[in-house]
Design a protein around this nucleic acid. Structure first.
Lengths: 198, 198
DNA sequence: AACATAATGTTGACGGTGACAATATTGACT
DNA sequence: AGTCAATATTGTCACCGTCAACATTATGTT
């Protein structure tokens, strides 16, 4: 009748993170509670405190995982991607965009700075790494003069992030999201990338 | 010693909405609780239930107010704005952008569909009205062929929304947000609006 | 091997929240 | 005057995050 083998769990931290990810994917960040993941791991409600100082620390740890997953996705896509600069930029944008559409709740959590620990070094570094990967694809002479690659990078990122956010929050109607049978974001990115040719 | 004049408050609903807006602006949507606004209105914790079915209904009512405020802001700016189409598009974008930067917590709430009532008619209509105002400034022959005004509208809105969201969530460093002493978003919008000339 | 200490887990409590039910008071209409 | 709907109160419940006190086990030193 003993359901628990040992008093000490062994790898509770990992189990808790997996539980949190599962709840996140299925029910959103609101449902990710300390007590819920403790229940799922068959452990007392205060056990997680030994591994995560508070809920913010838990969500931050999850975000680090997610950001690393995104970084890997982008790196992989770029590594096997085309050589032309403009096309590589599009690969980057597509990777980010599809990641958001594929993992809606993960994507949304990534940017909920109000729920995360701003001072977390690992989080900052992983984010910076992704931004650096974008900058690496840009060189100033590819764009209209007067515009720095930073401005271009921020514009591109804003465009993708804005679109994905709106889509995930349900602010674009389904019919608005297709044009000529193609996803809207293809046309949208092409439209934007015209400035590279200007 | 009687602090309350009457058992029935008189205009509780309005008072509650103002309290909610005050808390929202100062502390963010997380702090906007039924009980908090009840306390602020010197009323029992269950009194708001007579005016708002639940917290979601309360936040939806606030959002309607905010969207109407945004609509007014945009309409005013456009009414006294320039005549050239491209400049009017910029006025629209600037209005949206500055509204977000000026009222961070209000702007963030507007898009938190997870907290709002999707079926609220007034909310939908106010949102649709703003989008229609943007479409009204566009005509298909102003843009590169192959791109509909819907695509352009969604791209522009995504760009602005993405930038504002990132800024408000603290995802752009302060130094990244200025270029040549000008706010980054000016250069960013100019960059994007080049496609109108292509 | 024995012990000390750190790591990890449990139990119980506190105050906060949204929501509901039961009740009290008041306003409005007949 | 009497009735009913609107509105406010009190009390309760389950959930949450967090803390404190305590129990159990792992680890490492002597």
């Amino acid at each position: 009748m003993k359901t628990k083998k040992t008093y000490h769990h062994g790898n509770l931290r990992e189990v808790l993170l997996n539980a949190a990810l599962e709840i996140l994917d299925s029910s959103g960040v609101e449902a990710v509670s300390i007590r819920a993941i403790a229940r799922m791991a068959n452990v007392s409600h205060a056990a997680p405190a030994n591994h995560f100082a508070d809920r913010r620390a838990l969500l931050t740890a999850i975000s680090v995982l997610i950001f690393k997953q995104l970084a890997t996705t982008i790196d992989t896509a770029l590594a096997s991607g085309p050589a032309a600069r403009k096309k590589r930029i599009k690969v980057f944008a597509d990777s980010l965009l599809e990641f958001g559409l594929n993992y809606p709740h993960r994507y949304k959590l990534m940017w909920r700075r109000d729920l995360l620990d701003d001072d977390d070094l690992e989080l900052q570094q992983t984010m910076d790494g992704i931004y650096a990967a974008l900058l690496a694809e840009l060189s100033s002479n590819s764009f209209p003069s007067n515009y720095s690659s930073d401005t271009f990078a921020i514009a591109l990122w804003s465009l993708v992030h804005g679109y994905v956010s709106m889509r995930l929050d349900g602010n674009f109607e389904a019919r608005q999201d297709e044009i000529s049978g193609q996803p809207r974001h293809h046309a949208m990115l092409d439209l934007f990338l015209q400035v590279v040719d200007c």
